[in-house]
Write a protein that binds this DNA or RNA. Sequence first.
RNA 1: GGGGGCAUAGCUCAGUUGGCAGAGCACCACCCUUUUAAGGUGAUUGUCGAAGGUUCGAAUCCUUCUGCCCUCACCA
Length: 478
Amino acid sequence: MSEIRDVRIKKRQELMDAGMNPYGKKFLKTHTIESFLKVFEKDLEVSLTGRMVLLRGHGKTLFADIKDETGKVQTYFHKDILGSENMDFVKKLDVGDIIGVKGKAFLTRTGEPTILIESFEILSKSLMPLPEKFHGLKNQELRVRQRYLDLIVNDEVRERFKFRSQMIQKTRQYLESLGYMEVETPMMHDVAGGAAAKPFITHHNTLDLDLYLRIAPELYLKRLLVGGFEKVYEINRNFRNEGVSPRHNPEFTMLELYAAYGNYEDMMKITEDLIVHLVQERDPSMVLKWGDHSLDFSTPWKRVSMKDAVKDHTGVNIDTVNLKELSAKYGFDDSHKMTRAGLLAHIFEEEVEKTLINPTFVIDFPTELCPLSKTHPHDPTLSERFELFIGGQEIANAYSELNDPVEQKRRFQDQIDLREGEDGYSIDEDFVNALEYGMPPAGGLGIGIDRLAMLLTGVVNIREVILFPQMRKDGSTS
RNA sequence: GGGGGCAUAGCUCAGUUGGCAGAGCACCACCCUUUUAAGGUGAUUGUCGAAGGUUCGAAUCCUUCUGCCCUCACCA
């Protein structure tokens, strides 16, 4: 129905014809709505801006709720104050219009702080109707495809994205306070490394060069350790050409940080400290509701080896169990390269991950699953690596970084052999070369920022913490 | 990619056994000078996601397609 739009286009023209610009310019406001409400005082002269979200006509007057980034306030257009000519302009206003107002504060009979408008400007005439005032916008698809409407109408959505921004801001402050330096490394890689994932492929025309959108910044950040920076971090996007799900978006935000001369124990401490710091500000009780779960962030967090986690949960002792029996049970057949380590990881993912609701560090990963990690000094089959699980999801992943170039190259080659024939996988020779110059021992950590934001805001779908998550092409008009 | 569910007015939603496509809000007109999802009177509002099929007759049954949600697989 374009009738509403037609009516508004007509009003737009009538405003212009009457000399009132419906798309105004810079407007100086004295307060945000939040700050106005805080300092409210009768007869205070203020100017405010906002979008009209609710109109209540009342004879020769009009109440309009206007909303800015910080809140909502009632305004009052009165014919006796504005005069009949201005009141004609008021009749051309609609829900959705963005206006600037000047006026005097007062309290209505019922005690509502209100601005008695002395003058106003139309800063943007809205042509499209907003979603319904009471039920708002619920349609999942529209909420994402037209996120701007979601943000206008659904306050809790706007608050959630504000929180996400503050969470990242606090993370930066925390890391800076520990002496970490933020860096930016390439998004376009000629070798897709640092994680096991399918990359997106793109092409540089002038250089005639196929490039991969990065799947992880890891190998570049470690080059910086070689270069002599001792504490670096990066918060930015990774791109993985894989399925979309309530927990996966093709582009997602990752914090990676590296500390020279440290190890994965340091990373465990920094992970716990950072997340506890963020949770504490959210809710000092340290317990957050998340979906059907309640997450208890009280320290110290549980630590369990992968072997023990599997043993405790399934009774399977991976070192003594009959492999054939077990692989049959878990759907492994001869076509898989079945090893005890591979099977352990498989059972862990199938049976254990989803049960790790309160924060749990899983440690002592089999080395063959950790191509970038140092091994335990006393047991080379295990690596100095942990993954942090909260709410059954992997939130963080960290190692004592492997800094032996010869061993690193051998492990890369093993990975390539496993993925024989697949495109996009090759050894980052320059990274190995960098290691040959000497990288200090280091702890390295990655934290999934979107998932952390999910936990801290209580939502179970990643698209609720990503402003514009990936969607298919809109099929509604075809 | 596999399996299940959903798609009706700008928004939120009803729609019985296949029998004239509905409500609330929004919009429009009129009334109303402190309302609070204001109120009152009246009017308008549709490619029932798309294309086929069955039928005297399809929003409703069948097929295909598109999109969204859930789930499995890949993965963080």
